[in-house]
Design a protein around this nucleic acid. Structure first.
Lengths: 300, 300
DNA sequence: TTCATTGTTCAAAATACTTGTACAGGTTGT
DNA sequence: ACAACCTGTACAAGTATTTTGAACAATGAA
């Protein structure tokens, strides 16, 4: 390797200051030290970087090229150095959070904003998955933290979890749907006459979970609760939806909750993470999630 | 700057060889020299990169991070160094060629292939433009070389050109087009009854050239000769097309050439380039284009 | 012209890197 | 268990590289 970061920053300083003398002052070096450094790299590369034929030194075309590209290199090295310091001080440089799409993303907004305020230098990656998809993200290390994961699949000792709370479901239909006008509780034999919509498991490797639907019923599979929700609002299909998802729609009359013969049991949702390398960023999330888990289940 | 490229390559060697001793051998250094280097960078950054508690040194998590990111940095530095050498030896690292879309791209294939064979390390950027769009690319330095440029707009002393040859045009219509059955030569008064299609000038700043069409005629503007060609084949419109573009289609009966009252004069097309900084790559293209310009006008 | 400034040269000084040897553990094979 | 062979470290001595400062030639400004 003939080039080194120090030489590049010397070139950069000379170019920026317009002369060896000014750069020497900036770098707290004597002029001849810069002559030495520049000559050294010029000799190694067998090129000329500065044209010193005039009074002041001027970059040659190839010098300009080196400066341009070299500055990029310097910047990246600086970023690397900063990141090393950040990691060494216990903070991650980025954090991959996967949430189960059963939690409305907007309920995460307050935490995300606060985190950004307190740790603006940590890049958050927020991804939605469904059912076992969250666990898969954790096991494959695509996620550092999963929020709202269904059930408790933490078979491994390096996975820690705690329960966020319970999600309850209601059977919801559009006001103009035939089931809307039936007397309650609606029997399964009625429900299976109509199309249902299920939000698919997003797991690709783990065997997907199946979630309550009735045998023999037509069904559509979608890949998010939101798709399921708007499909039920449109009256295209029926099914169970989390109370937190339909609260507003029910208030506005866009969906109607019906009692059914066999209701769906509420399920616990959890937070889970890999306890092998807990950085301060992850700890921040764990602390805040433990503090007020209820904020994730709010309806406004 | 606390990190330097040399230290990173030492870390890299140790990690790759699995021990300080092996790395020392590879680097032709003595073991203690590596201890020194590693300790040095560890002290500067105030971290530990290798865990030496066991028999052999093992990367710590942060060491792994440094290695990953640092290797990228090293690679880029190596590329920069290579590029500097390449430029210093007179070869560009990339070459931007803009051709007038009136030249079928496949006619450039033999030259492109040969160039890639002889100069695999120079990245070619080949872009199509129309009419003054080629000149604009040259003037704005988006292009190092333009091929098949229409006319001769080289007003500036730093632009050199030579003529490639002449392109002749025929008036072509689809066999099922009404004009196909008219007696020759077809009068302008007949032609203006039908839609024509023109390939637009792609220049954005220079005032676009207008190319022969009749006043009062409906017209469609497209942005490539190929679009114009297939539109005429489909019988959607009529117009002049370069002989080299329609040769095959005429042979297969997909287009019919008709004599017209006012034929379109053939035009010279040129090669042009900026003569301020001619690298060896550019020179190669100039030599080969001057050598056999006719290959660009072939019909197979 | 004179004066300030620019970059270079060169020998000496300061710093940084490398070496070699000695040492304190581990691992392997018998 | 033991020798033989690893591994990495410590430290003093040697070598290489970088920095300094003074003297100098070339340029530009007043």
């Amino acid at each position: 390797m003939k080039i080194d970061l120090n030489s590049i920053s010397v070139l950069e300083s000379i170019a920026r200051n317009g002369s060896f003398a000014k750069a020497a002052e900036e770098l707290n070096l004597v002029r001849s030290a810069l002559t030495y450094t520049v000559k050294n790299i010029e000799t190694k590369l067998n090129i000329t970087i500065f044209d010193r034929s005039g009074h002041k030194a001027q970059l040659t075309p190839i010098g300009k090229y080196i400066l341009e590209q070299g500055s990029d290199l310097l910047k990246q090295a600086q970023i690397l150095e900063d990141n090393i310091q950040q990691i060494a001080s216990g903070w991650e440089t980025e954090l991959h959070i996967v949430y189960d799409d059963i939690i409305p993303l907007k309920n995460l907004f307050p935490l995300i904003e606060l985190f950004h305020l307190e740790c603006p230098h940590i890049q958050l990656h927020i991804t939605a998955e469904r059912l076992k998809g969250t666990w898969e993200a954790l096991f494959t290390k695509r996620a550092d933290l999963i929020i709202g994961a269904a059930g408790d699949f933490a078979q491994a000792p390096e996975i820690s979890t705690f329960t966020l709370g319970q999600l309850d479901f209601d059977f919801a239909v559009a006001p103009h749907h035939p089931l809307a006008s039936l007397p309650e509780p609606i029997k399964n034999s009625e429900i299976i006459k109509y199309c249902s919509v299920v939000a698919n498991d997003t797991a690709k490797e783990l065997t997907p979970m199946t979630t309550g639907r009735l045998l023999g019923q037509d069904r559509i599979a979608v890949n998010s609760i939101h798709s399921k929700f708007i499909m039920q609002c449109a009256g295209l299909a029926v099914g169970f939806l989390p109370k937190i998802w339909i609260h507003d729609a029910v208030k506005k009359g866009k969906l109607i909750v019906k009692k059914v013969e066999k209701s769906k049991a509420g399920g616990n949702v959890s937070v889970a993470w890999n306890n092998q390398k807990i950085g301060k960023g992850l700890q921040w999330w764990l602390d805040h999630l433990r503090d007020k888990p209820s904020q994730l289940f709010t309806t406004n």
